[in-house]
Amino acid sequence: MASAPPDFEALTGHCTCKSITYTLLAPPLVTHCCHCSWCQRETGTAFALNTVIECYNFRITSPTQPTVARNPSLSGIGQLVARCPTCCVAIYSHYSNVTATMFVRAGTLEEGSRQRVRPDVHIFTGAKVEWVDLSKEKERGVKVYEEYYEREDVWSEESMERRKKLLEWVEEQKGAV
């Protein structure tokens, strides 16, 4: 059930050792730059950059499959993190037990694909490190939130329509079981 525009060129990525390769078959729904202290600790850097895509628009293209483990999260619900079994790089997560969307680590995108993905929103900036300056992001129209946001305030109309189709698909899957 891919939902890419006809002129969309797939985004591709891989882990460090290239045992895991993948493709995004549609543009991201949204890309979050999360500055929460949890993401800082988990990534070992100032923020996490996750691009969100429907599960049916994400394909592992390598024979090697990721190892998925439950990690704790700030919400207390936890997250499922998919890592390369060889180099242990995190490729994507599912948050709050929702597997219909994938939070793909934008840093794992290949060079040509990585340049095509930029943050749509900066979240949990109340915890950001003081040396990260978001003034240029604000100038380019990127929304910045101390905590989280209302989806309708950030997501594009196209992404909201795709989300509606995703929710319909999720309901169809429940009926098929």
Rank of each mutant, 00 (worst) to 15 (best):
W131H: 13
E147N: 04
T64S: 09
N50Q: 09
L166T: 11
T125I: 07
R118F: 06
G141W: 06
Y56N: 10
V89I: 15
V142M: 08
T12G: 01
A100R: 07
R59A: 12
G78Q: 06
E161Y: 02
A82P: 01
L80D: 15
G107Y: 08
P28R: 11
L25N: 10
R59D: 12
L80E: 14
T12A: 05
E137R: 01
G141M: 08
T101R: 02
T64Q: 15
I53G: 01
H94L: 06
T86W: 00
E172Q: 14
F8I: 14
Q40N: 05
P6C: 09
E42D: 07
E158K: 11
P6Y: 07
P63N: 10
R41Q: 13
C39T: 09
G13T: 09
E147M: 04
T101S: 03
V170S: 04
L25A: 11
Y149P: 00
T61S: 14
E110F: 00
C17R: 07
A82F: 03
V68Q: 03
I77K: 15
M160F: 02
C88P: 01
R59C: 08
T108P: 01
R116H: 02
T67L: 13
E130R: 03
A106D: 02
D7N: 14
E158D: 13
Y145C: 07
L11M: 08
K136D: 09
E150D: 14
A4T: 05
C88N: 13
E150C: 06
K136W: 05
F47R: 02
R140N: 05
G76Y: 06
Q65W: 08
A10N: 13
Q115F: 01
R114P: 02
E157A: 15
C39S: 10
T108R: 02
Y92E: 06
E157M: 10
S93I: 10
K138Y: 00
N50Y: 14
M102E: 05
S75Y: 12
